[in-house]
Amino acid sequence: MTIDAAEPGSSASAVEEHLEYPGGKVHLFRGGEGAPVLFLHAAGGAGRWYEFHEALAGRFQVIAPDHPGFGGSDTLDDVEGVDDLVFHYVDLIERLGLERPHVVGASFGGWVAAELAVARPDLIGSLVLLSPAGLRLPEHPVEDLFLMTPDQVVTALFSDPARASVLFSGEPDIDDILAAYRDMTAFARYSWAPFLTNPKLERRLHRITAPTLVACPTEDKVIPVAHGRRYAELIPGAEFSLIDDCGHAMHFERPAAFADTVTEFLTTHTADEPSGVSR
């Protein structure tokens, strides 16, 4: 099935697909042509094709799955933690026939992307981590979104609250509320204890061999910029970039700046012959 891009004013489209797994289906969007980019979403933003997806799809083939339990994906009983998500995405890469795709992960998805690149460096062409979670820095604690009111979540995620309408409906109906509750339930399943961290990850980041960009917003109120800097320090050869004038949800708040930064990096690390993908 083909659906219109979610952002107002966009005339582009993406293909919606479902993959059958034992115990349920996994939902994904696919759009664009070229070298494949696997985009792993944050705690929010599942189930839709956004402006930033479309911007990347102008240069790459973007594959944007919903993590099990999020968006349009069923909860899979055997995917219980981030370690299970890693093997889930190893399987997805192989099932889709992606040859060393670029992997881009945002926040929680950045943590998953980093763990994937640690566990299977041979599968990853290049890596982009957007304000990634996953590290434990006691001197720079991560904010707990579970303890915030909806208004506090908006203030935490966006430097300009007016941009929050991209991600949050102004007057959510019952379906919006139930979808958000389901996503947060899945998020808690993967990240509750220990909260948004793998204490062993720091000492494993040296295993990443893919060219890596770590990009953080200057006004992140959820995951301090120090976390991104630590990732960049520990991943061999990693580049570090700051995106100005935006909060944690930078790819929603400043999609063009996000896309320009990521596209420039990925283009530099794309082979002359695009990686193959079977449909």
Rank of each mutant, 00 (worst) to 15 (best):
A193H: 14
H227A: 01
P150G: 06
A226E: 04
L242V: 03
I177E: 05
R182N: 11
H269N: 04
P236T: 04
V214A: 04
M250I: 14
A179D: 15
L213V: 15
H251D: 07
A188T: 08
A193D: 15
G134R: 09
Y190S: 03
M250R: 03
K200G: 09
I174D: 14
L157P: 07
E171I: 06
P236C: 06
M148R: 15
Q152E: 15
F252N: 09
V225A: 11
R182A: 09
A210E: 07
L137A: 03
R182F: 09
L201M: 13
A210G: 07
L196M: 12
A193C: 02
V153P: 10
R230N: 08
F265W: 10
D272Y: 01
A226C: 00
P172I: 06
A257Y: 02
T149R: 01
P150I: 05
Y190M: 12
L178V: 10
A186Y: 09
A188W: 15
V154H: 11
T149W: 03
H251S: 06
L266Q: 10
A180V: 05
P161F: 01
V222M: 00
D272P: 04
L196E: 12
A133S: 11
D176F: 08
P236L: 08
L196D: 00
V222I: 07
E171P: 05
L157W: 02
T270Q: 00
L178P: 12
A238G: 13
H269Y: 10
L135R: 04
V222Q: 00
D272R: 15
T209Q: 15
E219S: 10
D183L: 04
G237R: 10
V225L: 07
I243M: 08
A188C: 02
I208V: 13
M250K: 01
A249L: 08
V166I: 12
P211S: 03
T209H: 15
E253S: 02
R189Q: 07
L213D: 11
E202V: 05
Q152V: 07
C216N: 15
V153M: 13
A186T: 11
V142T: 12
S241T: 14
G247Q: 11
D260Q: 10
L157I: 01
T149V: 08
E219Y: 10
D160N: 09
S165H: 08
H248G: 01
